[in-house]
Design a protein around this nucleic acid. Sequence first.
DNA 1: GTCTATATTAAGATAGAC
DNA 2: GTCTATCTTAATATAGAC
Lengths: 176, 176
Amino acid sequence: MPKETYIPFLLELFRKYGYDGATLSKISKATGLGKASLYHHFPGGKDEMVDSVLDYLQQWLKQYILPSLRQKGDYKTRLKLMGDRLLELYQGGEQPCLFAILLLGSARDLFHERVKDLFLVWIEEMTQVFLETGMDKLSAQEKAEDVAIAIQGSLILSQALNSVLPFQRVIKQLSI
Amino acid sequence: MPKETYIPFLLELFRKYGYDGATLSKISKATGLGKASLYHHFPGGKDEMVDSVLDYLQQWLKQYILPSLRQKGDYKTRLKLMGDRLLELYQGGEQPCLFAILLLGSARDLFHERVKDLFLVWIEEMTQVFLETGMDKLSAQEKAEDVAIAIQGSLILSQALNSVLPFQRVIKQLSI
DNA sequence: GTCTATATTAAGATAGAC
DNA sequence: GTCTATCTTAATATAGAC
């Protein structure tokens, strides 16, 4: 099977166990591939697996998240569309954010630059949305950061409380 | 030396590397203790080390964070006092939150219950503050959760962007 | 309370057949 | 593209002397 087949499994495992916790044994069991086969698809080992998952998420961002912010309509409508996409991505708040996992884990240094860039692209796009409402540049950027903060924070709180309510409330309030 | 001596080192290491990444070798080097000595102080190994750090943070919460919310003054004054404490705890936004690290790492199941309780106590205390402004119960609780969300989210964003500005801005806005 | 030395296990990774 | 078998390293953990 082509290696793209295994990306969703890898995403699930890294989300569930983190970089260190997602061992090759777990990955082998989850994908049904032996360790040697995993190295055939990902010669760079786990690092390359994470990189491939980040490729996938980057693609997701460009294909689903950013376009939702470029739709016709006022800014609340567009944020609502983005919220719908984020509800999918995080399965309603059940799943944590892989970016946060990588930022807070032992492999931080390996992936920090990529994660930072993904945040910057996302925030820049939201900044444009707020700029079009007539805000000045700084306010628009802070507003965009506030959205990112609320989403990341609510995902953490949803994990902490074992409840999707914090995340879902934040998503709802995007369009209020 | 009594084992309390080593708690700050452990906190620093778990924050920096996460549960898996903070290996006994690193802990040994950072504390200056041999591995066997670490097991003398913490017979339960790393799990007990984390538990001891959580004891320390729970103590910190009860001794510094919660009392700041019970001071005289309006709610903004009290939130500002809490913000000052959080600036210390997270070193102005340089340091990530150990609770988030544990929630997103491989040892999630081991420590989830304790972390959840700490969040609940903190949020409950903030809810009381907002209740005293005349809010209804639900609004006060959501306001309290929003503060927790903003703090957690801004710590993530500060890590992502390698800038303390998101965290510091959130702390400032507590009293606005 | 700290050490040296060691046991045990599991991790990441590779060789080479099919 | 997948496998079995194996290598190497590093992790957690313990025994027993000082």
